[in-house]
Write a protein that binds this DNA or RNA. Structure first.
Lengths: 233, 233
DNA sequence: TAGTGGTCTAGACCACATC
DNA sequence: ATGTGGTCTAGACCACTAC
C-alpha cells in the first residue's frame, strides 16, 4: 500500500483512489470483490466494505450486489457547500458583525412563496427583511418568511433584538431543506440595501426548511456583488 | 422506535433525528452514550455507532471521545450539489444537445489562471472556449485551460470532434477539486455567445481539478440567465 | 485515570441481480 | 441457482481527553 493513514479503511480508500487516478483500474472496469481485497490488504471484509462504501458515496465507484464493484464511467461531480451562519462568517473574517431589520410584519404570502413552502396562498406568515453588515459594509440582504405553525414560539419574538437565523437554528431544527443558487440583477431595493448600483449581478441563495409540521421558513439571501461561495471536494 | 426503515442503523438515525426535531434532546444536550443506546434499541454498539456517525457527518451531532455525544449548538448547513455532465443534463431535460468550439489554441496562461492552477505564469496550455446548446438555445459557455503535463495524451486531441469535459472525465480522473460559485454581469462576449444582453446576471462556476501531477484543468462556466443550481439535504 | 467514541475482526445471515 | 455487496453481532483493543 502506498499510503499510511490514520485508519486501515482510510489507507484502502487512498490506495484504491490511486489505482483509479493512475489508470490501473479504468473507467468501467470491474475491480476485485471485497473478499479478494480483504485478503490482498490483510484486513477483514468489513473494513474493505467501509472503504469502498466511502468511495461509492464520493461517486468514484458503482456498487451492485451480484454485479460487483465498477469504476464509475461518468462520475457526476459532487460538491459539498457549507452555508455558515452569517454572523460567524463575518466574525471569522475578522470583521465586526451588525445587522438591521428593515421590516417585520405579518403578511399574507404571495403565490411564489406559497409554492415554495407548500402552503395555501394568502396564509398569514411573519415577513422579515434584514441586512447583515461586516464592519458596517452590507454583506447580505435577507428576505424571509416564517411559519409560526411549524415554529412554535416564534410569534412572540422581536427580531429587531434577536437574529432570526440564530433563533430558528436553535429553536426549530429541520428535517429537510430545499436550496437553490442563481444569479439576479440587483433590483432597486437590493441595490439600495447593498449600497451598489442597480443591475449588479448578485449571487442569490434560496432556502426552504421543513420539519414534520411543514415548512418552517423560506429565505432569499442576496450576497454583495463579488461574493463567491466556495465548495470543496 | 417510531420509524421502521430498511436497516436498523437507518431506523436509529430517524429516531434520533425525531428526538432532536421534537426537542426531546435540545441543542447542547448530551445524549446517552453508545452502550446505553445499544441496550435501548436492542442492537450491537457498532450499529449505534454507525447511526450516530451518519448524524455527525450531517452536522446534527458533535461527538468527542470521553466527552460524549452532544446535539450540535449551531449546525452549519451543509448542502451537496451535483454538477452533472452538460450533455447528460440537457438530454435528461428532453432537449437535443449540441456544442460548438469557438476557439482551441495553445496560449501562455495569464496570471489569474496561473494562480488558480498553481502553475508558473506564461506556461503554454491548451485554451478552449465552447458553447453548449439545448435544442439550439445556448445553455452554458465554457472557458477552459488544460494542462497537458497533468493530462497525458491530451495534446493530440481535436476538441472540435470530442467533448472536452467528457474526454477529461474519462481520461484524467482527479484527486482534488476547487470550486466556487459567484455571479457576474455578462460581458460583451458572454452576452453574444449566450444570446442575451450585456449586463445580464449570470451564475458562474469556476472549477479547478488536480491529480498527483498537478492541475489538470480549470474552467469557468457561465450559465444562461435564469439558470438555478439545485442542492439537496 | 477512567469513560467515551473509533476502529477492527471473524463470522454470520440476508437481499438482490444476474447468470 | 449463485455470487456479490449490505448489514449485523459480540467482542476486543485503542486513542483521546475531560475529569
Amino acid at each position: 500500500m502506498t499510503e499510511r493513514s490514520s485508519s486501515k479503511a482510510q489507507a484502502i480508500t487512498s490506495e484504491v483512489r490511486r489505482r483509479i487516478v493512475d489508470r490501473e483500474w479504468r473507467q468501467g472496469d470491474r475491480i476485485p470483490d471485497e473478499a479478494e481485497l480483504a485478503v490482498e490488504f490483510g484486513v477483514a471484509r468489513a473494513t474493505v466494505n467501509k472503504a469502498l462504501q466511502m468511495l461509492a458515496e464520493e461517486g468514484l465507484l458503482d456498487r451492485k450486489r451480484r454485479a460487483g464493484t465498477h469504476v464509475t464511467v461518468n462520475p457526476a461531480r459532487k460538491a459539498t457547500l457549507t452555508i455558515p451562519i452569517v454572523r460567524e462568517q463575518i466574525e471569522q473574517a475578522g470583521m465586526e458583525y451588525s445587522h438591521r431589520v428593515i421590516a417585520q410584519k405579518e403578511s399574507p404570502i404571495p403565490a411564489e412563496i406559497a409554492r415554495r413552502m407548500e402552503l395555501p396562498e394568502g396564509r398569514l406568515l411573519i415577513h422579515l427583511r434584514t441586512v447583515h453588515y461586516g464592519d458596517g459594509k452590507p454583506f447580505q440582504v435577507e428576505d424571509r418568511w416564517i411559519n409560526p405553525g411549524a415554529a412554535p414560539g416564534v410569534a412572540g419574538i422581536d427580531f429587531h433584538r434577536v437574529n432570526a437565523n440564530e433563533w430558528l437554528v436553535r429553536n426549530a431544527p429541520w428535517l429537510r431543506a430545499d436550496m437553490a443558487f442563481s444569479a439576479e440583477n440587483a433590483n432597486a431595493r437590493d441595490a439600495r440595501l447593498l449600497e451598489t448600483r442597480q443591475g449588479s449581478a448578485l449571487l442569490i441563495l434560496q432556502r426552504t426548511t421543513f420539519n414534520d409540521l411543514g415548512a418552517i421558513t423560506t429565505v432569499r439571501v442576496a450576497f454583495h456583488p463579488g461574493y463567491a461561495m466556495i465548495a470543496t471536494h
